[in-house]
Design a protein around this nucleic acid. Structure first.
Length: 573
RNA sequence: GGGCGUAUAGCUCAGCAGGAUAGAGCAACAGCCUUCUAAGCUGUGGGUCGCAGGUUCGAAUCCUGCUACGCUCGCCA
């Protein structure tokens, strides 16, 4: 609400008080009939030693005639409610949005700043399940948000390709692996032997040592183990590529943990020089008492590296490579403590950008009766979920549009099915856990991606018809905005007005759901408008023009918001 | 035990730098397709905002205590 600043200005001038007092106090009322802006006068009452109601009345008198856009002001209780001139409001917002073309609410404050977003980061040789979807989809949306404000974004996939687990995998493979099965479906086969390893472990604890031995050999780059690991890694990357293609996600870097392994000695030296390394129970740790944290383990008692040291090495490497403005980790909430430690160690080591490293945590995907576990083979593959979602979509489309050609059905079903899944991971606060339920995942009504896509397609359909009838395109500056003064139209305008702030807040808090909520409300407002007004069959041509402009603008906002979320906007469905 | 987080309608969630009768969606029920896409729209019912105190003109929102659940607390990542 851009009028807020001007109103605060006038209030300050007329009362001789600080402008900030008013801009802090001014708020958007909970209901449209209470006005467009409101000033609660309760706090002023104390300072001015007058009743809130009386203050509101006096202020109302002082602003009278001072603002061109002010339609009326009303005192209700201790509130001064401000109503803006709706036609003028519509004109301002629509002109602004048309001036910004396809990217309303974009910004350039990020130019010249590089933001690294680490996300997805699956473990090689393991199935890509719906748990990974959280990081992948939230991370992509956050990357898109930064790009929308002009930042140069580097998408980093920090592959889990290192650690004792790969020693175990090699052991498992040597015991039970099948070449044919590996060639046929590598991830499934590798996962099969890995799961078997943990089952066998119960009776044969010696397997544990075997796994450790192979990892040690791997670290020493023993040719046989190394080649095997390399094979597993390559096969996994190929499999991951398929899913990333399907999600339309492209990474700028696929450097995994293994890449940083040989960069750790330099980190250890650095920490030692700073006098931070302490021996404890045979291991090398950094004491973090000053931060209220437990010591951070840098080197294990056998001298081997650990994930914390690898993460620290990665920060130095990334800064040398990209000179980052921000370094963001989209990693699950259970690793909060880990990142607090890593960032604290960086601070202790006087790394100047420690505060520019941010852990963006998200919740856990689990079943109602327990957690996903790769080891127990108790997972739902993202691909299976997508397939299910696409299949359901396809059935709906065929039911609704029996005439639609098969190829188009396929294409739309893919976009809608994938979009629906995407949306379920983005619609809520990211730190909430998601209890997996097929019904919720495949609910295409109400607050869902298909609802947004449907609304977009509906707008598109109207614009197509308008073009066919020769009434579109038309000059957006040459419409009568008085026709957009109604409640249905104004609620749409207000949401468009709020879109940019929702993007900024989403970026600020790394919470894509905030932006999505805005376009979800916009879609709802448009559908109400659509159901209560005739657009192409409006009472006269001027009314129709105004409504077409509103429709086209809605279409633009929906598309922009969906694109940030990574969801396709479809011309028909 | 220490730390972090969560608790709002039957279900899934918004709201939380204090403010006006606590909002959506789903589910339930009742309606709306001879007019631009019914994956839509309208209406109805449904809430001691976990519990107990406190601060305040005013608390879902801030503070304290408690309860429940989840995560985490060096040699996995």
């Amino acid at each position: 609400m851009h009028y807020k600043d001007e109103l605060a200005e006038v209030l300050a001038r007329e009362t001789g008080m600080e402008k900030n007092i008013f801009s802090d106090l001014l708020e958007i009322p909970p209901q449209a009939d209470m006005g467009d802006l409101a000033l609660p006068c309760f706090r002023l009452a104390k300072e001015l030693k007058k009743a809130p109601n009386q203050i509101a009345v006096e202020l109302k008198g002082k602003i009278a005639g001072k603002l061109t856009w002010l339609r009326r002001a009303e005192v209700v209780g201790g509130y001064l409610n401000i109503y803006v001139e709706p036609a003028q409001y519509a004109e301002t917002i629509l002109q602004k949005s048309f001036a910004q073309g396809a990217t309303p609410g974009f910004g350039t404050e990020g130019l010249e700043k590089t933001v690294l977003v680490e996300y997805s980061s699956p473990n090689i040789a393991k199935p890509f399940h719906v748990g990974h979807a959280f990081s992948t989809l939230v991370g992509e949306a956050i990357a898109n948000l930064y790009e929308y404000r002009g930042y140069c974004v580097k998408r980093l996939n920090h592959l889990g390709d290192y650690g004792t687990q790969f020693g175990k995998l090699i052991a498992a493979w040597r015991h039970w692996g099948s070449e044919e099965a590996l060639a046929d479906d590598p991830i499934t086969e590798l996962n099969r032997v890995y799961v078997k390893f943990y089952r066998e472990l119960e009776d044969k604890p010696e397997l544990e040592d075997e796994g450790r031995l192979y990892f040690k050999r791997l670290e020493e780059k023993a040719p046989e183990e190394y080649e095997l690991w390399k094979l597993f890694r390559d096969l996994s990357l190929k499999a991951f590529d398929k899913i990333y293609n399907r999600l339309n996600i492209k990474f700028d870097s696929m450097l995994g943990e293994s890449f940083y392994s040989d960069k750790i000695p330099a980190v250890v030296d650095r920490l030692r020089e700073k006098g931070l390394l302490v021996e404890s129970e045979g291991a090398q740790v950094v004491n973090l008492d000053d931060y209220g944290l437990n010591p951070c383990l840098i080197l294990k008692s056998d001298g081997a590296t650990i994930y914390a040291s690898r993460d620290i090495a990665a920060v130095y490497y990334r800064d040398e490579t990209w000179d980052f403005y921000r370094n963001i980790y989209v990693v699950g909430a259970p690793q909060k403590n880990h990142f607090q430690q890593v960032f604290a160690v960086l601070k202790e080591a006087d790394f100047p950008k420690a505060d520019q490293c941010i852990h963006v945590a998200f919740g856990t995907v689990r079943f109602a009766d327990g957690i996903f576990s790769t080891r127990q083979g108790n997972v739902i593959l993202l691909n299976d979920l997508l397939a299910e979602s696409v299949a359901k979509t396809k059935a709906i489309i065929q039911n609704n549009n029996p005439e639609m050609p098969e190829a188009e059905v396929e294409k739309i079903a893919e976009s809608v099915g994938v979009g629906a899944v995407r949306y379920t991971f983005l619609r809520n606060g990211r730190e909430r856990d998601i209890v997996f339920s097929w019904d919720d995942m495949l609910d295409f009504e109400g607050d869902s991606a298909p609802y947004l896509q449907y609304t977009y397609a509906r707008c598109s359909s109207i614009m197509r018809l308008a073009a066919a009838n020769g009434v579109w395109p038309l000059d957006p500056t040459k419409i009568n905005h008085e026709h957009l003064a109604g409640e249905e139209e104004q609620s749409i305008i207000k949401l468009m007005d709020a879109f940019e702030d929702s993007v900024l807040e989403a970026l600020d808090t790394h919470e894509p759901s905030i932006m999505l909520r805005n376009i979800s409300q916009l879609a709802r407002a448009f559908n109400r408008f659509y159901n209560s007004r005739s657009i192409l069959h409006a009472e006269d041509k001027e009314v129709m023009k105004a409504r077409l402009i509103l429709t086209e603008s809605t279409r633009t906002y929906l598309k922009a918001g969906l694109k940030i979320a990574g969801i396709d906007a479809l011309e028909r469905m």
